[in-house]
Computed example of a mutant assay.
Amino acid sequence: MNSTNNMSLTNWNFSYYNSEFFKALISFTGVPKGDDIEFVYSATVLDLEEKEVFQKDFKALDEAILFMNTTYGHWTFMDPTQKEGGCSSCEAH
């Protein structure tokens, strides 16, 4: 899988998949477990109003990433750190 067009171990915390009405991302959350809190990676889908419409928890980050790429990989991949156009992409300098 090409990590520049998919979620990866190096971009999961700021990249997401976007469709016309939804955004799919991974968040790091805590789930109550008795008197403790278990930390998990949550594959989450938000609607246009940023309301959660789906969430699935994973204990391992690589499993959450695989789920996201497999389930939402056909949506538009958004990585805010990747610049498109502009002077930084110019090879004339």
Results as ranks from 00 to 15, higher is better:
Met1Gln: 09
Asn2Val: 04
Ser3Ala: 11
Ser3Pro: 14
Asn5Arg: 05
Asn6Arg: 08
Met7Arg: 05
Leu9Asn: 13
Leu9Pro: 03
Leu9Ala: 11
Thr10Asp: 14
Thr10Tyr: 03
Thr10Pro: 03
Trp12Asp: 07
Trp12Ile: 00
Trp12Lys: 00
Phe14Val: 06
Ser15Trp: 02
Ser15Arg: 07
Tyr16Ile: 02
Tyr16Gly: 01
Tyr16Asp: 02
Tyr17His: 09
Glu20Met: 10
Phe21Arg: 13
Phe21Asn: 15
Phe21Ala: 15
Phe22Met: 09
Lys23Leu: 10
Lys23Asp: 07
Lys23Gly: 02
Leu25Asn: 04
Ile26Ser: 01
Ser27Gln: 08
Val31Gln: 09
Val31Cys: 05
Pro32Lys: 15
Lys33Pro: 00
Lys33His: 06
Lys33Trp: 06
Gly34His: 08
Gly34Ser: 12
Gly34Asn: 14
Asp35Leu: 15
Asp36Phe: 13
Glu38Arg: 15
Phe39Tyr: 09
Phe39Asp: 04
Phe39Leu: 10
Tyr41Cys: 03
Ser42Lys: 10
Val45Glu: 07
Asp47Cys: 00
Glu49Cys: 05
Glu49Ser: 08
Glu50Tyr: 05
Glu52Arg: 14
Glu52Met: 13
Val53Pro: 02
Val53Ile: 13
Phe54Asn: 12
Lys56Thr: 10
Asp57Ile: 06
Phe58Arg: 06
Phe58Trp: 04
Lys59Ser: 12
Ala60Pro: 01
Ala60Trp: 07
Leu61Thr: 08
Asp62Asn: 13
Asp62Met: 07
Glu63His: 12
Glu63Asp: 15
Ile65Arg: 13
Ile65Phe: 03
Phe67Pro: 05
Met68Tyr: 01
Asn69Trp: 01
Asn69Asp: 08
Thr70His: 07
Thr70Leu: 10
Thr71Asp: 03
Tyr72Arg: 05
Tyr72Thr: 08
Tyr72Ala: 09
His74Gln: 13
Trp75Leu: 09
Thr76Tyr: 12
Thr76Glu: 13
Thr76Lys: 14
Phe77Met: 02
Pro80Tyr: 00
Thr81Ser: 06
Gly85Glu: 04
Cys87Trp: 15
Ser89Trp: 03
Ser89Asp: 02
Ser89His: 09
Cys90Gly: 01
Glu91Ala: 08
His93Asp: 12
